[in-house]
């Protein structure tokens, strides 16, 4: 186990370096001057050079990259060009909201995904299976930003039950565990939960059907084990895969929340990305994407390790 852990850690290092290179490269694939949004259009060449030097854009790429990495390791992701505030603090504040939203969405999606998946896998080709399968196809095919709009139309515009936008009353961006804030969480979390629900239901259905077709199930039944006992064995066999899917889904939601956050004006990383893109605030874009991508890598690592701890037969290379 320890050897595996070490190997897995070593394997993660090149990925982390690669991800950093890609994030760093984003600024340099961007057309035009990275300072275009701060400089007045009639800026003199001298002022331009001065700003280039101040931001370090005049040095060779590898030097800029190493400097950027060195600073990032110390928690300094640079300064937002548009607001002049530190990127790290902006991202940190936003990431909390995105984490909350994605986590709740994953829980909801996982609960229903497991339910549908188990029922469908157990009663294969029954009407329940058909319904569960249709629901999971809908879950993976629905454009979730549109689903968000539809939910807003129904529950905010028509019924006036829930607030359509924001994370709290009066546009508060700091989430608190009270009813006023919770009401703001319901619609975006449900919208977001549809994605993992469909995928989890699909995966679990195939998995349960596969486990039930294995030889040990009739053996257990012949031994006289109750259906509940057999169900326990199925759960035990399905757990590592289910866990892996859940971890990956949480990561996808964290990274993919931008569309839903835009629909609901949720003050998270997606909102930040949106602002960064349209104000051409490249350090902010770079920093936010780096943090989200590293989160995803870390999550993958944790999932792999936990999975191996549960079931030592799975040792992914």
């Amino acid at each position: 186990m320890l050897v595996y852990l070490g190997k897995r850690l070593v394997y993660t290092i090149p990925i982390v370096i690669g991800v950093s290179v890609v994030c760093f490269g984003l600024v340099h694939i961007a057309p035009g001057d990275p300072l275009v949004s701060v400089l007045p259009p009639d800026a003199s060449e001298e002022l331009k050079m001065q700003m280039m030097r101040a931001y370090g854009f005049d040095r060779p790429y590898y030097e800029q990259f190493l400097l950027w990495c060195w600073r990032a390791l110390q928690g300094d992701l640079g300064v937002s060009i548009a607001t002049g505030r530190s990127v790290a603090s902006e991202v940190l504040r936003a990431v909390k909201n995105t984490l909350l939203l994605s986590f709740v969405a994953t829980l909801i999606g996982f609960f229903f995904g497991l339910l549908f998946g188990f029922v469908a896998g157990y009663f294969r080709n029954s009407p329940i299976d058909k319904i569960a399968s249709i629901l999971s196809v809908i879950g993976v095919s629905v454009p979730h930003y549109w689903l968000g709009m539809v939910l807003v139309i129904i529950f905010s515009v028509q019924l006036n039950w829930l607030p359509p936008t924001g994370a709290g009353p009066g546009g508060s961006a700091d989430w608190q565990p009270d009813w006023a804030h919770f009401r703001h969480l319901i619609l975006p979390a449900i919208t977001m939960s549809v994605i993992p629900m469909g995928i989890v239901a699909r995966t679990i259905r195939a998995l349960v059907a596969d486990i039930l077709s294995q030889d040990f199930v009739p053996a257990l039944r012949a031994k006289g084990l109750s259906e509940l006992g057999i169900f326990g064995h199925v759960v035990k066999n399905a757990a590592p895969t289910a866990l892996a899917v859940m971890g990956l889904q949480l990561g996808y939601l964290l990274g993919g929340s931008i569309l839903i956050e835009t629909v609901f004006s949720w003050p998270g990383t997606g909102f930040l990305l949106n602002a960064a893109i349209f104000q051409r605030d490249l350090p902010l874009l770079q920093g936010t994407i780096l943090v989200l991508a590293l989160f995803f890598v870390l999550l993958n690592l944790i999932v792999d390790v936990i999975q191996t701890a549960i079931d030592p037969r799975i040792q992914r290379s």
Partner: peptide, 8 residues
């Protein structure tokens, strides 16, 4: 490395 990013 590219696979390490969520697609969206």
């Amino acid at each position: 490395v590219f696979y390490a990013f969520p697609s969206v």
